[in-house]
Design a protein around this nucleic acid. Structure first.
Lengths: 227, 227
DNA sequence: AACCCCTGTGTGACTTAGTCACAGACATCG
DNA sequence: CGATGTCTGTGACTAAGTCACACAGGGGTT
């Protein structure tokens, strides 16, 4: 899909590395970038697939997760607007197969860059280089934090953390099943159910089918931070 | 420390990306590279430190691990000869603080490159770019495998795997305390002791103070692979 | 309404893993 | 030899994960 002026303005807004309009890189970028939309639930990368394009998110979010042999899942990170799936990026650049699964959590708008140009621009543009390496470093840090979480923190703290981060600030609601939360954290549904019940008894939340209402954010915050 | 011809030959041997002698990059590399040695047990990067240099390993190994609040550790990956600490690399390039700890497991010989040149060569040399991105991709994959391990696999399988991988092939010995194995896998010493005892009862290994003798590699392999 | 069906949740019993406290066992060095 | 520090073993307990199954809520359908 070609990129009209309206989309172009929106993208310049969204992608900070395009801000320097004088940079010839921006011109190259718009020459090669292709606008795409994806539906909610659509898979972007499969485990072990090699990547021929780099997608940069404009709107929506994607979840990158690892699937265990027993069918359990754990979220590694999310790709939010302005970001990109660096796993893809580094797989492009080194031709290592992609070690996880990426799926759209919402409807998604993105621009897609062919692998060759991703490579080429690295040698031509410091802006692009900084963008890519910034992503790599933050992802590495993300994933290392996941390791730390899984290896060292207790389940109730991790669930508290998750509720704290992902509950809607205005409605105080989190729309998610216990199974979804379990898949987020790499545990099992029963464990989530039990701990949520605990929190409910402490009057921190109210649990209903498919949604959780946050009653006492402060108490949750305390629960989350204690060791 | 300057690099004499002998070292230079050894390095060309060790670092595959220097193999193309006609590449002007090799010349730049030897102009800027500084040879260093480090002692066993010496710390290379501290948590949260920013990195001003990239070290490339010539001889020896370093262990990169995460330290939990409760004092437990878990190994993220090792840096072996020819490799480099990409965490360092990506922290250099994006100025994100280093989120883990690196320590020399043996005496180490390495070459050190100033951050500025690491950057500069990325735009100049495709060889260098491929080297760096190859490292990034394999590390990401490494760490994701650690996540998978910790989140989904049972402790006895993980310990079996560890013994299998790190026991000396000729002596059939692994010189390590239970505490060291625990720190490797992010668990506690008692758990390791108990599972090793199990393996000993199954006549797979023989446990002595500070070392483990592998008696039945096949049985261990089976143990490791079952779900 | 009464029914069915699907998805989501609750629960008890059991296994595995992690924690805590403390007892021994071994090695080395004066 | 005893003293000391490191390494390992053990029991009792808590936390987390597994398994089997019961039950609840909320559409549709008849």
């Amino acid at each position: 899909m070609t990129i009209d002026n309206q989309k172009r303005a929106a993208m310049t807004q969204q992608l900070r590395f395009l801000a320097q309009a004088d940079d010839p890189f921006s011109r190259h970028f718009f020459e090669k970038a292709v606008f795409t939309t994806l539906n909610k639930g659509q898979y972007v990368c499969h485990e072990g697939s090699s990547c021929s394009h780099l997608a940069i998110m404009l709107n929506g979010t994607a979840r990158v997760y690892k699937l265990g042999e027993n069918g359990k899942e754990i979220t590694l990170y999310r790709v939010d607007p302005g970001e990109s799936c660096v796993l893809t990026a580094s797989c492009i650049l080194s031709e290592v197969p992609f070690p996880a699964i990426a799926v759209c959590e919402t409807a998604v708008e993105a621009v897609v860059i062919p692998a060759g140009d991703v490579q080429k621009w690295l040698s031509e543009s410091i802006t692009w280089r900084n963008y890519i390496f910034g992503l790599v470093a933050t992802r590495l840090t993300n994933i290392i934090n996941v390791v730390e979480d899984v290896a060292f923190r207790r389940m109730d703290k991790r669930i508290a953390e998750h509720l704290y981060k992902r509950t809607d600030r205005t409605s105080h609601l989190l729309l998610a099943t216990h199974q979804e939360i379990a898949s987020e954290l790499g545990t099992s549904r029963e464990v989530v159910s039990r701990i949520l019940k605990e929190f409910e008894l402490e009057a921190i939340i109210r649990v209903t089918r498919g949604s959780i209402e946050l009653l006492d954010p402060e108490k949750l915050d305390r629960r989350r931070c204690e060791i």
